[in-house]
Protein backbone atom coordinates (compact mmCIF):
# COMPACT_ATOMS: atom_id res chain seq x y z
CA UNK A 1 0.00 0.00 0.00
CA UNK A 2 2.70 2.44 1.00
CA UNK A 3 4.29 1.90 -2.36
CA UNK A 4 1.11 2.93 -4.14
CA UNK A 5 0.56 6.03 -2.06
CA UNK A 6 4.12 7.08 -2.56
CA UNK A 7 3.63 6.92 -6.29
CA UNK A 8 0.31 8.68 -6.18
CA UNK A 9 1.82 11.52 -4.18
CA UNK A 10 5.03 11.91 -6.10
CA UNK A 11 4.81 13.76 -9.36
CA UNK A 12 5.56 11.64 -12.40
CA UNK A 13 9.25 11.45 -13.26
CA UNK A 14 10.82 13.64 -15.91
CA UNK A 15 11.79 10.77 -18.17
CA UNK A 16 8.84 8.55 -17.34
CA UNK A 17 11.28 5.92 -16.11
CA UNK A 18 10.83 4.57 -12.63
CA UNK A 19 13.19 6.15 -10.10
CA UNK A 20 14.16 2.93 -8.42
CA UNK A 21 14.80 1.13 -11.67
CA UNK A 22 16.99 3.98 -12.83
CA UNK A 23 18.82 3.82 -9.51
CA UNK A 24 19.51 0.10 -9.74
CA UNK A 25 20.82 0.51 -13.27
CA UNK A 26 23.03 3.35 -12.12
CA UNK A 27 24.32 1.16 -9.33
CA UNK A 28 24.95 -1.70 -11.75
CA UNK A 29 26.91 0.67 -13.95
CA UNK A 30 29.09 1.47 -10.98
CA UNK A 31 29.47 -2.21 -10.12
CA UNK A 32 30.76 -2.81 -13.63
CA UNK A 33 33.80 -0.74 -12.68
CA UNK A 34 34.19 -2.63 -9.42
CA UNK A 35 34.34 -6.03 -11.10
CA UNK A 36 36.39 -4.69 -13.97
CA UNK A 37 39.07 -3.63 -11.52
CA UNK A 38 39.05 -7.10 -9.97
CA UNK A 39 39.10 -8.90 -13.31
CA UNK A 40 41.71 -6.52 -14.69
CA UNK A 41 43.95 -7.27 -11.74
CA UNK A 42 43.47 -11.01 -12.22
CA UNK A 43 44.55 -10.62 -15.84
CA UNK A 44 47.52 -8.39 -15.05
CA UNK A 45 48.78 -10.96 -12.55
CA UNK A 46 47.88 -13.97 -14.66
CA UNK A 47 50.78 -16.37 -14.92
CA UNK A 48 53.03 -14.26 -12.71
CA UNK A 49 52.95 -16.41 -9.59
CA UNK A 50 56.43 -17.29 -8.40
CA UNK A 51 55.41 -20.54 -6.75
CA UNK A 52 52.63 -23.05 -7.37
CA UNK A 53 50.14 -24.51 -7.25
CA UNK A 54 48.93 -23.21 -10.59
CA UNK A 55 45.49 -23.17 -12.17
CA UNK A 56 46.12 -25.56 -15.05
CA UNK A 57 49.54 -27.15 -14.60
CA UNK A 58 50.86 -29.43 -11.95
CA UNK A 59 53.85 -28.25 -9.97
CA UNK A 60 56.59 -29.76 -7.90
CA UNK A 61 58.15 -27.50 -5.32
CA UNK A 62 61.93 -27.32 -4.89
CA UNK A 63 61.48 -29.43 -1.77
CA UNK A 64 59.87 -32.13 -3.86
CA UNK A 65 56.27 -31.55 -2.84
CA UNK A 66 53.88 -32.32 -5.65
CA UNK A 67 50.77 -30.24 -6.40
CA UNK A 68 47.99 -31.12 -8.83
CA UNK A 69 46.56 -28.41 -11.07
CA UNK A 70 43.89 -26.51 -9.18
CA UNK A 71 40.85 -26.02 -11.41
CA UNK A 72 38.19 -28.67 -11.69
CA UNK A 73 36.38 -27.72 -14.91
CA UNK A 74 33.44 -30.16 -14.59
CA UNK A 75 32.55 -28.85 -11.13
CA UNK A 76 32.65 -25.20 -12.11
CA UNK A 77 30.83 -25.89 -15.38
CA UNK A 78 28.05 -27.38 -13.35
CA UNK A 79 27.96 -24.35 -11.07
CA UNK A 80 27.97 -22.05 -14.08
CA UNK A 81 25.03 -23.85 -15.62
CA UNK A 82 23.12 -23.67 -12.34
CA UNK A 83 23.69 -19.93 -12.09
CA UNK A 84 22.63 -19.43 -15.72
CA UNK A 85 19.47 -21.37 -15.03
CA UNK A 86 18.75 -19.29 -11.96
CA UNK A 87 18.70 -16.26 -14.24
CA UNK A 88 16.22 -18.08 -16.43
CA UNK A 89 14.11 -18.98 -13.38
CA UNK A 90 13.94 -15.44 -12.11
CA UNK A 91 12.65 -14.02 -15.40
CA UNK A 92 9.85 -16.57 -15.22
CA UNK A 93 9.16 -15.58 -11.62
CA UNK A 94 9.00 -11.96 -12.72
CA UNK A 95 6.64 -12.81 -15.57
CA UNK A 96 4.49 -14.62 -13.01
CA UNK A 97 4.52 -11.61 -10.70
CA UNK A 98 3.58 -9.25 -13.52
CA UNK A 99 0.69 -11.47 -14.59
CA UNK A 100 -0.53 -11.97 -11.05
CA UNK A 101 0.14 -15.69 -11.43
CA UNK A 102 1.05 -16.49 -7.84
CA UNK A 103 1.93 -20.11 -8.44
CA UNK A 104 4.31 -19.17 -11.23
CA UNK A 105 5.86 -16.44 -9.07
CA UNK A 106 6.40 -18.57 -5.98
CA UNK A 107 7.47 -21.66 -7.88
CA UNK A 108 10.11 -20.02 -10.04
CA UNK A 109 11.30 -17.70 -7.30
CA UNK A 110 11.86 -20.72 -5.05
CA UNK A 111 13.74 -22.38 -7.89
CA UNK A 112 15.90 -19.28 -8.25
CA UNK A 113 16.76 -19.24 -4.59
CA UNK A 114 17.54 -22.96 -4.59
CA UNK A 115 19.78 -22.55 -7.64
CA UNK A 116 21.52 -19.61 -6.01
CA UNK A 117 22.11 -21.59 -2.84
CA UNK A 118 23.49 -24.41 -4.98
CA UNK A 119 25.94 -22.04 -6.63
CA UNK A 120 27.15 -20.67 -3.31
CA UNK A 121 27.45 -24.22 -2.01
CA UNK A 122 29.49 -25.14 -5.09
CA UNK A 123 31.78 -22.21 -4.40
CA UNK A 124 32.22 -23.07 -0.73
CA UNK A 125 33.05 -26.65 -1.68
CA UNK A 126 35.39 -25.43 -4.41
CA UNK A 127 37.24 -23.09 -2.06
CA UNK A 128 37.74 -25.72 0.62
CA UNK A 129 38.76 -28.25 -2.02
CA UNK A 130 41.33 -25.85 -3.48
CA UNK A 131 42.65 -25.17 0.00
CA UNK A 132 43.11 -28.90 0.46
CA UNK A 133 44.98 -29.01 -2.81
CA UNK A 134 47.43 -26.49 -1.39
CA UNK A 135 46.16 -23.18 -2.73
CA UNK A 136 45.83 -20.80 0.23
CA UNK A 137 44.87 -17.15 0.05
CA UNK A 138 48.47 -16.18 0.72
CA UNK A 139 50.18 -18.96 -1.26
CA UNK A 140 50.84 -16.97 -4.41
CA UNK A 141 49.44 -14.25 -6.65
CA UNK A 142 47.07 -16.73 -8.23
CA UNK A 143 45.57 -17.58 -4.84
CA UNK A 144 45.21 -13.94 -3.78
CA UNK A 145 43.64 -12.76 -7.03
CA UNK A 146 41.48 -15.84 -7.58
CA UNK A 147 39.93 -15.93 -4.11
CA UNK A 148 39.43 -12.16 -4.03
CA UNK A 149 37.71 -12.03 -7.41
CA UNK A 150 35.49 -15.08 -7.02
CA UNK A 151 34.97 -14.36 -3.33
CA UNK A 152 33.58 -10.91 -4.05
CA UNK A 153 31.40 -12.40 -6.74
CA UNK A 154 30.18 -14.97 -4.22
CA UNK A 155 29.46 -12.19 -1.73
CA UNK A 156 27.33 -10.48 -4.37
CA UNK A 157 25.49 -13.75 -5.02
CA UNK A 158 24.86 -14.02 -1.28
CA UNK A 159 23.47 -10.48 -1.08
CA UNK A 160 21.24 -11.30 -4.05
CA UNK A 161 20.07 -14.46 -2.30
CA UNK A 162 19.14 -12.51 0.84
CA UNK A 163 17.26 -10.04 -1.34
CA UNK A 164 15.43 -12.71 -3.34
CA UNK A 165 14.80 -14.75 -0.19
CA UNK A 166 13.13 -11.74 1.43
CA UNK A 167 10.98 -11.31 -1.66
CA UNK A 168 10.13 -15.01 -1.61
CA UNK A 169 8.84 -14.68 1.95
CA UNK A 170 6.83 -11.63 0.91
CA UNK A 171 5.38 -13.43 -2.10
CA UNK A 172 4.38 -16.38 0.09
CA UNK A 173 2.40 -13.91 2.18
CA UNK A 174 0.83 -12.56 -0.99
CA UNK A 175 2.60 -9.24 -0.73
CA UNK A 176 3.89 -9.05 -4.29
CA UNK A 177 0.79 -8.27 -6.34
CA UNK A 178 1.26 -7.30 -10.00
CA UNK A 179 1.50 -3.58 -9.25
CA UNK A 180 4.47 -4.34 -7.02
CA UNK A 181 6.22 -6.59 -9.51
CA UNK A 182 8.84 -3.88 -9.78
CA UNK A 183 10.14 -4.89 -6.35
CA UNK A 184 11.06 -8.23 -7.88
CA UNK A 185 12.26 -6.69 -11.12
CA UNK A 186 14.90 -4.68 -9.26
CA UNK A 187 16.21 -7.75 -7.47
CA UNK A 188 16.10 -9.68 -10.74
CA UNK A 189 18.17 -7.03 -12.51
CA UNK A 190 20.80 -7.26 -9.79
CA UNK A 191 20.69 -11.04 -9.99
CA UNK A 192 21.17 -11.04 -13.77
CA UNK A 193 24.06 -8.65 -13.34
CA UNK A 194 25.73 -11.02 -10.91
CA UNK A 195 25.11 -13.73 -13.49
CA UNK A 196 26.72 -11.83 -16.38
CA UNK A 197 29.74 -11.13 -14.21
CA UNK A 198 30.09 -14.87 -13.84
CA UNK A 199 29.63 -15.26 -17.59
CA UNK A 200 32.82 -13.21 -17.90
CA UNK A 201 34.66 -14.82 -15.00
CA UNK A 202 34.03 -18.38 -16.13
CA UNK A 203 35.95 -18.28 -19.42
CA UNK A 204 38.46 -15.60 -18.39
CA UNK A 205 39.48 -17.22 -15.12
CA UNK A 206 38.77 -20.91 -15.60
CA UNK A 207 39.06 -21.62 -19.31
CA UNK A 208 41.86 -19.36 -20.53
CA UNK A 209 45.24 -20.83 -19.83
Amino acid sequence: MSHDTAHALHPPTTTGLDNRKLAIWTFIGSEVMFFSALIGTYLVYKGKSVVGPFPHEEWTSPTGEHFEHIFEIPLVTFGTAVLLFSSFFVVLALAGAQRGNRKMLIGWLSATVVAGLFFVGMQVYEFSHFMDKGLGYTTNLFGSTFYTLTGFHGAHVTVGLIWLGTLLILSLRGKIPPEKALNLELAALYWHFVDVVWIVIFPVVYLMK
Binding site: T15, L17, L22, I28, G29, M33, S36, G40, V44
Partner: peptide, 22 residues
Protein backbone atom coordinates in the same frame (compact mmCIF):
# COMPACT_ATOMS: atom_id res chain seq x y z
CA UNK B 1 18.09 3.13 -24.15
CA UNK B 2 19.16 5.12 -21.11
CA UNK B 3 19.44 1.85 -19.19
CA UNK B 4 21.53 0.34 -21.96
CA UNK B 5 23.74 3.40 -21.86
CA UNK B 6 24.18 3.12 -18.11
CA UNK B 7 25.36 -0.45 -18.60
CA UNK B 8 27.38 -0.18 -21.79
CA UNK B 9 29.26 3.05 -21.09
CA UNK B 10 31.06 1.71 -17.99
CA UNK B 11 31.81 -1.51 -19.84
CA UNK B 12 33.34 0.53 -22.65
CA UNK B 13 35.44 2.60 -20.23
CA UNK B 14 36.49 -0.49 -18.30
CA UNK B 15 37.46 -2.39 -21.45
CA UNK B 16 39.77 0.44 -22.51
CA UNK B 17 41.27 0.67 -19.04
CA UNK B 18 41.93 -3.06 -18.85
CA UNK B 19 43.43 -3.11 -22.34
CA UNK B 20 45.70 -0.18 -21.47
CA UNK B 21 46.77 -1.81 -18.21
CA UNK B 22 47.53 -5.11 -19.90
Amino acid sequence: TLFSGLFVFPIFVAAILIAALL
